[in-house]
Nucleic acid binder design. Structure first.
Lengths: 332, 332
DNA sequence: GGCACCTTCTACAACGTTGTGAAGAGCAAT
DNA sequence: ATTGCTCTTCACAACGTTGTAGAAGGTGCC
């Protein structure tokens, strides 16, 4: 049976509250008493019961991170960095997978579990604009990504439009004029796909190149397989293209695979750029050019923001945008 | 302020214990009372306080998963599958990263946080044989991987020796005779690297091929970069080889990159096989042959085992080995 | 010597839940 | 009418912690 404050108190010959004061570094404890208590703690191997502490104090020092799928490299690396950032602040991270399922995302926001954590970092993919009011919850919440905005809720995001524009301009600067897109979501305005398409079109407009709908390769899921299929569809359609802008690296790797299988040389025939700067593009064949959207900074700022919100619910909602950069490798 | 059992009780005109009975589906509650209570619950949006429940009942319905690094695809996919398996059993998963650091792994085993979860799935990489006794902890524990064994502790693992032997035999069957290794850990006996090397040597022995130490490409970390460096070192050493067995897929992709950069054709000049069957080998260039070590089953069985251990600490320790299979793709 | 003020420690009351045991109501059997 | 049973409800006591209020003892100042 685990030792409690009372057990330690009995051994040290003090009241259990004094032990609590020692544990919590309350200043007014005589050094000799403190030492006696610490010896008793060591002797019994006392460790505080975090459930009791959490019940009494209302704090658990845990946050939730809700992502669509951990097996997608972007989210695995994001989670990695969120866990590191949280640990630096003494927080542990509980991970929920929503599978981009709207119902699961809604359930999550109403879950009792949410009241056991101090805050939530939430990267929604299934919710729609009409669900926006659902994010008005009591638990401190920081939204990640572009799927959902709410003026009253903290938000940390990448610069999708500008970064996508920069990626497109990178391809234009390499002399490409027929730039296909892989990963578009037809009809989407807000959300990563919609915003990145907007950046793509802005770059084309600025360069005076007409937008050609036939160059869009839609892909609902942003997995490798869908990237390959979208590239195959583009090839099969017969449309002429000399570059591919894939809306994430995973799609890009799938697309590159399909291009090479179809006999197109990368980058000679088709230049490829992805988005996310995940590790798997660093050693692909050829290595993948990409946009670094500031994922590490997103993780850091997200944790920082939720910590601030936990400390003071009254502060003004923060909307943070992090920096981005182009990472050029062999594929472009 | 969140509603409590008392608030609901007051509204429904019953004692708070009756509300508790309704919430917990205690059978002897008159249907009319039950309904009145349920209406009050709905009206107030009551949700149980999980900290209080956990304090009182000693259960949190949460488990920890401790892995070296979530950004390694093997662990990302393992975590993905563990979270799914846990969710099916009503458990949430808290993820800790240990960075293969012995001290962090030891801290984890002694952490107060551990008493807040019902169980731990632990994939150690830093601990050594002399730390084995440290895993005798009060919290239900299931060890994953091969780094550490303890007869009294539950254990779920892949068949490293047999699977590595099968991978080597696969290369032998393709006519390769000079099979290099990428990812060995010099001197290691137990642990993934040691066991996989053992399987490699067993296959060579059975085929009557002498073991050649010069074919070993050591790599402490199993990242892409180290895979590339190990392959470069093999090439630079001038040793002749017509195949590479990389001890995980991430190493394999790095190695394949270096081979191709050095002008070796894969698989014509050098056949490559990896280990883990992570998603990133499915669309690499060329696609990567690999060993499927039963990761999904490991996740499932690990969660199942810890759930059994939570339910009854008295049952005999379980040592589970899951099945494996060879996945042949273009690289071999 | 009296007063105010520190320092150190303690008693008590929560936090919101579940387990135990028993009380009250209703009904059948004696 | 009394007893004994079942069904339903409730009062009470934990679980282990922290916050509040205050007591006990010592010290400095006028």
């Amino acid at each position: 049976m685990a030792a409690t404050l009372h057990d330690v108190a009995r051994l040290a010959g003090v009241s259990f509250k004094t032990v609590s004061n020692v544990v919590n570094d309350y200043p007014h404890v005589r050094p000799s008493t403190r030492q006696r208590v610490q010896e008793a703690i060591a002797q019994l191997g006392y460790q505080p019961n975090l459930s009791a502490r959490s019940l009494r104090s209302g704090r658990s020092d845990a946050i939730s991170l809700a992502v669509p799928e951990l097996r997608l490299p972007y989210f695995a690396e994001l989670a990695d960095e969120v866990i590191r950032a949280a640990e630096r602040r003494g927080l542990v991270v509980l991970i929920e997978q929503t599978n981009r399922d709207r119902k699961r995302e809604l359930d999550l926001l109403g879950s009792a579990r949410l009241r056991m954590v101090d805050g939530l970092l939430f990267s929604p993919l299934g919710l729609t604009a009409e669900d926006a009011s659902m994010v008005e919850i009591d638990t401190p919440l920081v939204l990640l990504g572009e799927r959902l905005f709410h003026p009253a809720v903290d938000h940390v995001t990448m610069q999708n439009v500008a970064a996508a524009r920069a990626a497109t301009e990178h391809l234009l600067a390499r002399g490409r004029r027929r730039i296909a897109v892989v990963g578009s979501h037809p009809g989407e305005v807000i959300g990563s796909a919609g915003l990145r398409l907007q950046g793509y079109r802005a770059a084309l407009d600025a360069a005076g190149i007409p937008f050609d709908e036939r160059l869009l390769g839609p892909a609902e899921l942003w997995h490798r397989r869908e990237g390959a299929e979208a590239a195959q569809a583009l090839i099969a359609s017969g449309v002429d293209f000399d570059a591919v802008f894939a809306f994430n690296d995973t799609l890009a790797l799938g697309a590159m695979h399909a291009l090479i299988a179809a006999g197109r040389r990368v980058p000679d025939d088709v230049a490829v750029i992805g988005f996310d700067n995940t590790d798997d593009g660093m050693f692909s064949q050829p290595t993948l050019s990409t946009v670094d959207p500031g994922r590490r900074e997103i993780a850091e700022r997200a944790v920082e923001t939720v910590v601030q919100r936990i400390a003071d619910r009254g502060i003004a909602p923060q909307h943070v945008e992090v920096g981005y950069s182009i990472v050029q490798r062999e594929s472009s």
